[in-house]
């Protein structure tokens, strides 16, 4: 059983029975394997934020089940609480959740709630802060004195320190400039490699998804529209555009070439891949 996290026929309806009733997710089945990195894409309102809040039991399914290592997280209160710690959830703009007097205490909030020993808490906090590239002096500083980018790192460290089996991030790079995005990207992959954690991250950016994920899951109108390796997903670029998603520019360039009769495939999403395809074509062989 290497499916760490699984949801089966999951549906969630907000405000059921009122005029405001809204089906946020409908009959979604999805599984994440140990150590896998999954990119979850979809435009606002496609249901992805609702879906991830089921992973750690914050939302209760209207129907269907959520399983962690094969066990239903809603079978008992203890299991639901355990799910909170097994699945670490980082919300959008997590820097706005900081509240403690020092960075150390803020990062320790999660581990403390888990009831860990003080020595273990200290070890985790120090490690997490190091993973997000902050110097140890920052530990005793107030999180409110830090810059926006540093606050984001502290917030990430707060969840890293819980050492969850599954790390779920809702748009971890939202609002950051290219440098900031690159850094956050490095911290997440760095943490993932060190702990072999399963990572699921929500993003609007196809480029980020393609670069980071081994598998991409695309959501549209409360359902999973498609899933597969980045290449498989981008090969269906037309459908992605219809679902209101941004397709990387290079993929669009290749699509355009195909329309004009030069079909060298459209499953590239980085400049390197596209350059290789064009090079192959130029040198008279296909990739």
């Amino acid at each position: 059983m290497n499916e760490v996290l699984k949801v089966e026929n999951l549906s969630h309806v907000y405000s059921a029975g009122t005029p405001f009733e809204k089906v946020a997710i409908q009959n979604v089945t999805f599984a994440a394997k140990k150590g896998e990195i999954i990119g979850l894409i979809g435009h606002t309102g496609s249901g992805k934020s609702t879906l991830i809040q089921h992973f750690n039991g914050l939302l209760k399914p209207t129907s269907g089940r959520v399983l962690i290592n094969g066990e239903d997280i809603h079978q008992s209160l203890e299991m639901t609480r355990a799910a909170r710690f097994a699945v670490g959830l980082v919300f959008q703009y997590p820097e706005y959740q900081l509240f403690e007097e020092t960075v150390r205490r803020d990062v320790a909030f999660g581990p403390k709630n888990m009831g860990l020993e003080q020595a273990e808490i200290d070890r985790r906090v120090e490690e997490a802060v190091q993973i997000v590239g902050l110097p140890p002096e920052v530990l005793e500083a107030s999180p409110f004195e830090l810059s926006g980018g540093q606050k984001r790192r502290v917030a990430l460290a707060g969840v890293f320190a819980m050492e969850p089996e599954v790390l779920v991030l809702d748009e971890p790079m939202a609002g950051l400039d290219p440098v900031g995005r690159e850094e956050v990207f490095r911290f997440i992959t760095g943490y993932q490699q060190k702990h072999g954690t399963t990572v699921i991250f929500v993003t609007h950016s196809m480029e980020d998804a393609a670069r980071m994920a081994q598998r991409i899951v695309v959501m549209d109108s409360a359902r999973i529209l498609m899933e597969g390796a980045p290449r498989e997903v981008f090969a269906r670029a037309g459908e992605l555009t219809q679902a209101g998603l941004d397709v990387p520019q290079v993929t669009r360039v290749l699509m355009r070439l195909r329309e004009r009769g030069v079909d060298i495939g459209a499953d590239a999403y980085t400049t390197e891949q596209a350059a290789a395809l064009i090079r192959g074509q130029k040198e008279g062989k296909t990739c």
Partner: peptide, 13 residues
């Protein structure tokens, strides 16, 4: 990405 692609082709080829 468009410019980066062209730049790549210029550098490689």
């Amino acid at each position: 990405q468009t410019v980066a692609l062209l730049d790549r082709l210029n550098r490689d080829l």
